[in-house]
Design a protein around this nucleic acid. Structure first.
Length: 806
RNA sequence: GCCGAGGUGGUGGAAUUGGUAGACACGCAUGGUUGAGGGCCAUGUGGGCACUAGCCUGUACGGGUUCGAGUCCCGUCUUCGGCACCA
């Protein structure tokens, strides 16, 4: 059995599109609700079943909220810059623009087949010059605010492919394509000063409702740690060596120092007899690929530099080593090593025979470093204090002597914002022959990508744009001054950092968005997408938003109030879906066979939205059966409304059933517990279909309630039932009445020593003695009470009568 | 190694503040409808003993608190996600 879903779904999708049913209106007396999906990258393989999971969830919420009286903004667009289209162009010569357009058309068609209530008039595309004009404009605002700089940064250079690779293209130190070795090579890059916002990105996590795991990941990524900077004098020179430490309390235990192989003192101060060793070590460390680094993680390496530092607290001379376990990118690129109380330093000291001194009691430092708490020993002025006291005392001491101060360090690094690629936003700036940076004026935007035919990298690591002589170089027609454009482009994150703002005012040609509209729609109330964007996208977008907030361009400190990650959908074999495993499910086929409404309900019924769960094609039958039952409840075999649906007053039990359903579905929908809401729909149908006469008002309430989940079928049935004045999508949802939620009778269980020995029906809120009386009357209960002494008896209202016996 | 989230029937999964574990669905079994198949309807379905009322046992494993634990506490194992020498 089935029902004519194909006709119904086509009919209503066309109706909604023709009538722009779901157009979001700017400004309204109604409260607003902004529900956002992470927009997709339109890949060549089309939509897979994981994509729609989040989209279905947001669509149910959007439709639900609309029917609860909210003015809903629910948009969709395309994050279309990126590597795959460019790599495809390299292989086939097809321009990324063409590929992108084709892919978008496929994605749009597929997404529309689900009947989502997007306002398609707000569709955006990050590769559209009308869109990236404003991405460039925002970059200029960041630049003018002093948040952009250029620096030599090591990038992933693949000599074989003659190109620079993104981190995600490097797997275990080799290129994803071809498996060629990848090395670090310094190149000049544009960098955004995200570290300037580290503290606020951290603190403001408190303002937003994100999953704990995501907050935790962002916290770790930002990696704030409190400690102190300490200045060490170097023996025999006026130079000093600065370190950052989180354990200033262990300063007396510092027996040597380590600098990163890239540290500048290695170029200046190494005595001649050590130069060769140090140079060799540095060369080896720099040549190391990522693969080697992780492989060698266990065994410490390093060389003595011949330099000595002086521990300021005890004037002890300690050797300075260099080792790649100290990172140039964190802190000052140098550490004071306290082998007694840091495991890495301990291992290094053991290997190279350096002194290990105990300064915190409690451990056995001959066996391993002691990182726990304890009382300070062998520590001069700190002896006898505990760790926290010692930290404060020594930090004050350092500050008094002007050789240190309390500091906060972040793991977060500035954001390398350029890519040596064609298919991205060009930077809105140019250079004159002196190399000065000249920002483009607003009226020169967008700086469009030139049309090109060859996408080969230049061979020097520059982007393919470097080959386009006529685009790169130009001469000012008036001043005859020569300029050249930047050939790097922006990373894929750029467009997705602010797209949620463009939806608010997508056609605005004068400004990125209108401020009044921004004030009306922002912030995003609910944002749903995959957990793979836990850190980067969400952190970058939050960063841009905060900058825009400081520039008074947006009205909220955070862009997304509530974030939910949908779980991954696995193949039927419980493995991740992939072409190679052959377990990929094509949503087109499922919709063709069962219809969009069935697909929507199935994916929501599978389990909690946030959990990973395997696909099961046979389970879809159950949902299709359910919708067919709904159809058959109302429509007879001739296609007419059944005659047992009558305009009669519902019986009390029927009112209980529908009110319970309204209550449960409303509550579950608001909490995104779609699976249990659907279960309640099924319970309703199973009970209700037993009635010989079906009250029309109850049928209508049910159809109304089901609408956000199965919009096509319900819209159709609603119309069949004779409601022609307006779409069901705009009817208010039914409300429940409390008096029907509490049944008059309750079923209570009887426990003896905690085991259930029977149950009985009794009127709600009966007093304790009545309940005990009823419980004692049960035969099986009597059997267990016989010959026993009752020590205790009590009643949990409307639930349990409990006897404790001996 | 560290951080985070999980572990409930053959399967996906339900279970207010601790209060009748397994809702709902898939699958399976039996019966009905049908020329047959499919579909649909009915009944049953954690394991075990009785198979009628009922009893024992059971939510990764081992302890504990409680009249009562999937839920709370301690320990262990395990799966998934993230980070990875961050001083």
């Amino acid at each position: 059995m089935s029902y004519p879903f194909k006709e119904i779904e086509q009919k209503w999708q066309k109706y909604w599109e023709d009538n722009k049913t779901f157009k979001a209106v700017d400004f309204s007396d109604k409260p607003k609700y902004y529900v956002l999906d992470m927009f997709p990258y339109p890949s060549g393989v089309g939509l897979h079943v994981g994509h729609p999971e989040g989209y279905i969830a947001t669509d149910i919420v959007a439709r639900y909220k609309r029917k609860k009286g909210f003015n809903v903004l629910h948009p969709m667009g395309w994050d279309a810059f990126g590597l795959p289209a460019e790599n495809y162009a390299l292989e086939t010569g097809t321009h990324p623009k063409i590929t992108t357009e084709n892919n978008i058309n496929t994605f749009r068609r597929q997404i529309k087949s689900f009947g989502f209530s997007y306002d398609w008039d707000r569709e955006i595309n990050t590769t559209d010059p009308k869109y990236y004009k404003w991405t460039q404009w925002i970059f200029l605002q960041l630049y003018k605010k002093g948040l952009v700089y250029r620096a030599e940064i090591p990038v992933n250079w693949c000599p074989e492919l003659k190109t620079v690779l993104a981190n995600e293209e490097v797997i275990n130190g080799k290129s994803e394509r071809g498996g060629h070795p990848v090395v670090k090579k310094p190149m000049r890059q544009w960098i955004l000063k995200i570290t300037a916002y580290a503290d606020r990105l951290l603190e403001d996590l408190d303002l937003i409702d994100f999953p704990d795991s995501i907050k935790e990941m962002q916290k770790n990524w930002i990696g704030r740690s409190e400690g102190a900077d300490v200045v060490f004098k170097l023996a025999g020179t006026e130079k000093t060596l600065n370190v950052f430490t989180t354990r200033p309390d262990t300063l007396y235990g510092a027996t040597y120092m380590v600098v990163a192989p890239e540290h500048s003192i290695l170029d200046e101060l190494v005595p001649d007899e050590f130069k060769a060793d140090v140079k060799a070590y540095k060369a080896k460390a720099l040549m190391k690929s990522d693969l080697d680094r992780t492989d060698l993680a266990k065994e410490k390496t390093g060389v003595f530099t011949g330099i000595y530092a002086i521990n300021p607290v005890n004037n002890r001379q300690i050797p300075v080593w260099t080792s790649d376990y100290v990172l140039i990118t964190y802190g000052t690129g140098a550490i004071m090593a306290v082998p007694g109380h840091d495991q890495r330093d301990w291992e290094f000291a053991k290997k190279f025979g350096l002194d290990i001194i105990e300064v915190i009691s409690g451990g056995q430092i001959e066996k391993e470093a002691w990182t726990g708490d304890g009382v300070l020993v062998n520590s001069g002025i700190l002896n006898g204090l505990n760790g926290d006291e010692a930290k404060i005392k020594i930090t004050n001491w350092l500050e008094e002597h002007k050789i240190g101060k309390a500091t906060i360090q972040y793991k977060l690094r500035d954001w390398v914002f350029s890519r040596q690629r064609y298919w991205g936003e060009p930077f809105p700036l140019k250079f004159n022959d002196n190399g000065d940076v000249i920002l483009l004026e607003d009226d020169e935007l967008p700086l469009e990508l030139p049309e090109i035919k060859h996408f080969q990298p230049s061979g020097t690591g520059e982007s393919p744009l470097a080959n386009v002589e006529e685009w790169v170089n130009h001469i000012d027609p008036e001043t005859r001054e020569r300029f050249h454009y930047e050939t790097n482009t922006m990373p894929q994150w750029a467009g997705s950092c602010w797209y949620y703002l463009r939806y608010i005012d997508p056609d605005n040609e004068k400004e990125a968005w209108n401020k009044e509209k921004e004030k009306y729609w922002m912030p995003v109330d609910l944002y749903i997408g995959g957990a793979e964007h836990a850190v980067l996208h969400l952190l970058y977008a939050r960063f841009w938003h905060k900058v825009l907030y400081d520039l008074n361009l947006v009205s909220t400190p955070e862009p997304f109030m509530k974030l939910v990650n949908q779980g991954m959908i696995l193949g039927e074999d419980g493995e991740k879906m992939s072409k190679s495993r052959g377990n990929v499910i094509n949503p087109d086929e499922i919709i063709h066979k069962f219809g969009a409404d069935t697909f929507r309900m199935y994916e929501m019924f599978m389990g909690p939205l946030t959990r990973t769960k395997p696909w099961s094609t046979s389970s879809i039958d159950g949902l299709h059966r359910f919708l067919t039952k709904v159809w058959n409840l109302i429509v007879d075999s001739d296609g007419n409304v059944r005659t047992d649906i009558k305009e009669v007053e519902p019986k009390f039990e029927t009112l209980i059933l529908i009110n319970k359903t309204v209550y449960k579905v409303s509550k579950d929908t608001e909490n995104l517990h779609f699976n249990t809401a659907i279960s309640q729909f099924m319970i309703f149908i199973n009970e209700f279909s037993k009635l010989s006469i079906k009250p029309k008002s109850v049928v209508e309430d049910f159809i109304n309630l089901l609408n956000p989940y199965a919009p096509h079928l319900t819209e159709h049935l609603w119309y069949m039932l004779g409601n022609h004045d307006k779409e069901l999508s705009f009817y208010q949802l039914p409300e429940y009445e409390n008096k029907y939620l509490m049944a008059d009778n309750v079923k209570m269980a009887v426990q003896i020593n905690g085991k259930v020995r029977g149950s009985f029906d009794i009127s709600r809120d009966s007093d304790d003695s009545t309940c005990i009386e009823a419980a004692r009357n049960i035969e099986n209960v009597q059997r267990f009470l016989e010959g026993k002494t009752i020590i205790k008896q009590f009643v949990i209202k409307n639930r349990i009568v409990s006897f404790v016996v001996k």
